[in-house]
Design a protein around this nucleic acid. Structure first.
Ligand SMILES: NC(=O)c1ccc[n+]([C@@H]2O[C@H](COP(=O)([O-])OP(=O)(O)OC[C@H]3O[C@@H](n4cnc5c(N)ncnc54)[C@H](O)[C@@H]3O)[C@@H](O)[C@H]2O)c1
Ligand SMILES: NC(=O)c1ccc[n+]([C@@H]2O[C@H](COP(=O)([O-])OP(=O)(O)OC[C@H]3O[C@@H](n4cnc5c(N)ncnc54)[C@H](O)[C@@H]3O)[C@@H](O)[C@H]2O)c1
Lengths: 206, 206
DNA sequence: CCTGATTTGTGCAACAAAACACAATCGTGG
DNA sequence: CCACGATTGTGTTTTGTTGCACAAATCAGG
């Protein structure tokens, strides 16, 4: 069975499954079913089964899924069965919160570098990582072979920083700045903008 | 033409259109077309037109859309033609970044209250907002009639805090904790989890 | 006032995703 | 070792979303 092009919407649900499964593991559970998982996530059991079946047969009829095994499989599919080094650009409030955040380690990521253009910030340490000058960014990222960046600079400079990141070989960008970015094909961008999320919900309020 | 149930996926794109249009306005532009907007956002022009047509006729054939007018219309549709008071729970790194963030004001939101359970934090000021004790949360939220909350507490206590928020009348929650929340019908939750976003992208890396 | 270049709004066709429903399989307990 | 309840994986149906293509409208220039 060769890998068909899997719909991106399916890929997007896998990390959510993974997060829920990890939580079940923490609660000491060993086995779960598509039904139980679906109830917790507000997703139909059939959908979960179909999503997983795109990648193989991971369950046992009559029993369900061995959680530890399924976690390992999804990690493998998502390529987070390794640790990716990540660069953070912008050592402001958001950059600080990200570097300080302990939740990346067991989910496949390690913040390896952080950059800023403010001379007052360059050289200071955030956790155990020293803030480096943006002028060195391309060289450092290229040298370390970093493919993933989180962008936490003001919106006004986001596009220019992105252009540099792409040139340095970055292929995945998580953008906190409230602007749409233009990137060449082959580079992926995801957006985190709390205002966008909130505005999606206000529509449904009275 | 009475309001039909508009697909949620359409609602979710409106804030993105709004953000791009606002940016065009800042750049001094007065008029745009579905084609231009689509190119900037990586969305087909037809889709943008169809999305907007769900709510009325906002454009002029041969000309395009008056940006200021369209912005006002979308703000109205999303109900962000007013300012919503928002409560933040958890005065840690994320809570701090949110309170400090200047980007909510012109997008329909104002952080009005912040709560924590750490006695060292209660009473201190973040920007011009005093951190209040979680014990007072329900009363304060109810009294202010707040309907929207941002949740920035550890995952382990997120569900219990959410239960309290819901009981206090909150109907929209933006959750930063990496857990799926269970809420009664009528309450909306959106999730921000950088690991989930990153894991969606690693699938496509080599 | 006519012509041509644009661009909207939308009916319809094509495509995609989700739900349904059930045979196949598994484990358990008698 | 058989029968039953549980649960998967999947072919089929249903539902939802996107793209296409064009009439209708608008504007500018001659
Ligand atoms: N704070 C939040 O909760 C929040 C929420 C949503 C979005 N955002 C967005 O995230 C981004 C960062 O927000 P923040 O609150 O951390 O802002 P901040 O001002 O605290 O930090 C921005 C940092 O970027 C640095 N910087 C500026 N120009 C740079 C450049 N050219 N190269 C490298 N570094 C540069 C600044 O020196 C500063 O340290 C902004 O785009 C903001 O709109 C923030
Ligand atoms: N920092 C990040 O970049 C980041 C990224 C993604 C997700 N998160 C998540 O966001 C949440 C907050 O992260 P953080 O970095 O700000 O953590 P943090 O530890 O800095 O802050 C958490 C705050 O919540 C408070 N708190 C704990 N229990 C509480 C309770 N029962 N009621 C009220 N307040 C309580 C703590 O006193 C603390 O001030 C966590 O769930 C974290 O996993 C953080």
């Amino acid at each position: 069975m060769t890998r068909n092009p899997i719909p991106e919407i399916v890929i997007g649900r896998l990390p959510v499954y993974l997060r829920a499964l990890t939580r079940l593991l923490e609660q000491g559970r060993q086995v779960t079913s598509s039904q139980e998982l679906g109830e917790r996530l507000g997703i139909s059991a059939a959908q979960i089964r179909k999503d997983l079946s795109q990648f193989g047969e991971f369950g046992k009829q009559g029993t369900g899924y061995d959680i530890e095994f399924l976690v390992a499989k999804i990690q493998e599919i998502l390529k987070v069965d390794r640790v990716w080094e990540v660069a953070v650009v912008g050592a402001g409030d958001v950059g600080h919160a990200l570097v300080n955040y302990g939740g990346f380690h067991d989910r496949g990521f390690k913040i390896a570098q952080i950059f800023d253009n403010d001379p007052d910030k360059v050289g200071t340490s955030y956790k155990d990582i020293v803030v480096m000058d943006i002028a060195q960014m391309q060289e450092k990222i290229r040298k370390a072979g970093i493919k993933i960046a989180m962008l936490a600079v003001p919106a006004s400079v986001a596009q220019e920083v992105v252009d540099q990141l792409v040139e340095a070989g970055v292929e995945a960008i998580l953008n906190y700045a409230p602007v749409n970015l233009v990137v060449p094909p082959g580079v992926r961008v995801q957006y985190i903008d709390p205002s966008v999320h909130l505005q999606t919900m206000t529509y449904f309020l009275d």
